[in-house]
């Protein structure tokens, strides 16, 4: 059974049909890439899956359980963690504190625990820190753990976001353009890292504009254009697909020449 099963997902904003009848099936342990021209609706799909938007219609099932109507924090607790296209770290907190936020949904202590410092609360606090530190090491961020997130170089901030997402112990990791703004060397490291993450048993769903990254790392690739899925297959299949080429290189409009992506 698929880990993530999305069927006939539809969302419109006012008159704009952002996502129309999209089906997605991601198998456990897979790396699924999603590509498409700007404005194709990729991030909207992510926002629908992670509960930031509510779908107009369609189903989102995760491990057999429907996620529609759940708030984002509940979806994170269910096992889907994400990063953002424009980095959304907690800028004035340290890197360690940022990553610790991912442990919140795996922790229990409340007001009483905080006030009375029960044994359970203290054990949990240590575990939160230990888990966060583990993910910092994994993402090669250990040396900068006590820096404020906003003072980190861009590439490191991206890695902090991934570490924070991993700290939630996700079954599915959703990455929104993880290679954006990275240089070639950093992108290559990122690809290795995404494979490593998959090898720990986490399924990965990513949006990426860098074709080298997305074709290099994905097991399957789906293509979105104007809110509709126009193709899906292995990277080789997708690259040879006539509709995909058309979506990317444009029909004979002339104007399409100006598109950057």
């Amino acid at each position: 059974m698929s880990l993530l099963q999305v069927s006939s997902l539809t969302k419109s904003f006012g008159g704009l049909m952002a996502v129309h009848n999209v089906d997605i099936a991601i198998e456990p342990g897979q790396i699924m890439g999603m590509i498409g021209p700007n404005g194709a609706g990729k991030t909207t799909v992510f926002n629908l899956v992670t509960g930031i938007y509510k779908p107009d219609s369609g189903k989102v099932e995760f491990g057999g359980r429907s996620l529609v109507g759940l708030r984002p924090h509940a979806i994170a607790a269910a096992g889907i963690a994400r990063t953002f296209q424009t980095i959304r770290l907690f800028p004035n907190l340290t890197v360690l504190e940022n990553v610790m936020s991912g442990r919140d949904c795996r922790s229990k202590a409340g007001v009483a625990g905080a006030l009375f410092r029960t044994r359970a609360q203290r054990t949990e606090e240590q575990a939160i820190r230990a888990q966060a530190e583990k993910h910092l090491r994994f993402m090669n961020l250990w040396p900068s753990r006590n820096e404020l997130a906003r003072n980190l170089p861009y590439g490191d901030q991206r890695r902090v976001e991934i570490a924070r997402a991993l700290a939630t112990d996700p079954k599915l990791l959703v990455l929104d353009e993880p290679a954006a703004g990275l240089n070639e060397h950093e992108s290559a490291d990122l690809m290795a890292l995404i494979r490593q993450i998959r090898d720990t048993g986490i399924t990965v769903f990513l949006i990426e504009h860098d074709m080298k990254v997305v074709m290099g790392v994905s097991d399957r690739v789906m293509v979105l254009d104007n809110g509709e899925k126009i193709a899906e297959g292995t990277p080789t299949e997708v690259q040879a697909n006539a509709r995909v080429i058309e979506a990317y290189l444009g029909r004979d409009d002339g104007e399409e020449m100006w598109r950057r992506d």
Partner: peptide, 25 residues
């Protein structure tokens, strides 16, 4: 504490906090 950190996360970036599993409400 966990709660104190959660408040800080909410104050810093509520959407990110919610997406990371913090029950912001």
């Amino acid at each position: 504490s966990r709660l104190g950190r959660a408040w800080t996360y909410v104050r810093e970036d509520e959407l990110a906090a919610e997406a990371m599993g913090v029950n912001t409400v």
